[in-house]
């Protein structure tokens, strides 16, 4: 057995998405490499979610290329996605993770151990047998995170993971993400919360009207933004 080919970097080349005659995404070139988390920021409707879905392979671009580790048709086995409003299967918390493990072809024998590990990682060990839909919003978000991690991803894409959470719950999620990133999993997270981006990200992509306005290291983005849009966005002006 040889190690599977890496799905990184994630590269977009002349990638366009159109709905009718409206252009939702238009990316000349964007490379997301392994390393610290990448934050994709921008106002609502700037194309963040669309970018993320294409990065997962859930959506095919209208034109252009997307490659994972240089390959266009790479299997999505080591990619995982966390939706903004994750849907829990109508099963227990443990079964939700078990389902993800099974769908990633994890052998039955090791699943029990993995479930405990993942539940512990997201701090839900006590909720193992609880119906997933009976958990609170923050708990569901963390369970969804555990479910995504069950796929043993090298690339984890998260769509506004803290948007609908109160600060305490958001912090819990961010802590887990930091822990996950520390294990070498590449995180790409969309957020309109600059605080999240500042706390988590190694690099930042600013999207506006479907275009990449700026892609730079987090330290540079927040101290010496190159573009007018980035300055205004950080100043809290309404980018329209």
């Amino acid at each position: 057995m040889r190690a599977p080919d890496s799905g990184l970097p994630l590269q977009f080349e002349h990638t366009r998405v159109e709905a009718g005659n409206r252009r939702i995404l238009d990316i000349e070139a964007l490379t997301i490499a392994s390393g610290a988390p990448t934050a994709v920021v921008g106002p609502n409707g700037s194309g963040k979610t669309t970018l993320l879905r294409i990065g997962m392979g859930l959506l095919k671009p209208t034109a252009g290329r997307v490659t994972w580790g240089g390959r266009e048709n790479a299997a999505a086995t080591r990619r995982a996605f966390l939706f903004q409003r994750p849907v829990m299967l109508m099963r227990s918390a443990a079964s939700n993770i078990d389902y993800a493990l099974a769908s990633a072809d994890v052998p039955r024998a090791v699943r029990k151990r993995k479930i405990s590990e993942l539940l512990a990682l997201v701090g839900l060990s006590d909720f193992e047998a609880r119906p997933a839909r009976h958990l609170s919003g923050g708990e569901q978000q963390r369970l969804a995170l555990a479910r995504a991690l069950a796929r043993d991803p090298e690339l984890l894409l998260l769509d506004e993971p803290t948007a609908s959470l109160d600060p305490a719950a958001a912090k819990a999620v961010e802590d887990i993400l930091r822990e996950v990133a520390g294990r070498g999993i590449k995180i790409v997270v969309t957020t309109h919360d600059l605080g999240t981006a500042r706390r988590l990200a190694g690099d930042v992509v600013l999207l506006h009207r479907g275009r990449v306005i700026e892609h730079t290291l987090s330290g540079i983005f927040f101290t010496q933004p190159k573009t007018e849009e980035a300055r205004r966005f950080q100043a809290g002006d309404l980018l329209i």
């Binding site: 997962m56 859930l58 999505a76 086995t77 995982a80 996605f81 939706f83 994750p86 849907v87 299967l89 109508m90 099963r91 389902y99 993800a100 769908s103 990633a104 479910r147 995504a148 796929r151």
Partner: peptide, 24 residues
């Protein structure tokens, strides 16, 4: 409608999706 995206992100086959829908 609820499950489609989640199952797609988990790479679940059509047969697997049928089974999941029937069970849940």
């Amino acid at each position: 409608v609820q499950y489609r995206d989640e199952l797609a992100a988990m790479n679940v086959s059509t047969a697997g999706s049928v089974a999941t829908l029937l069970w849940d």
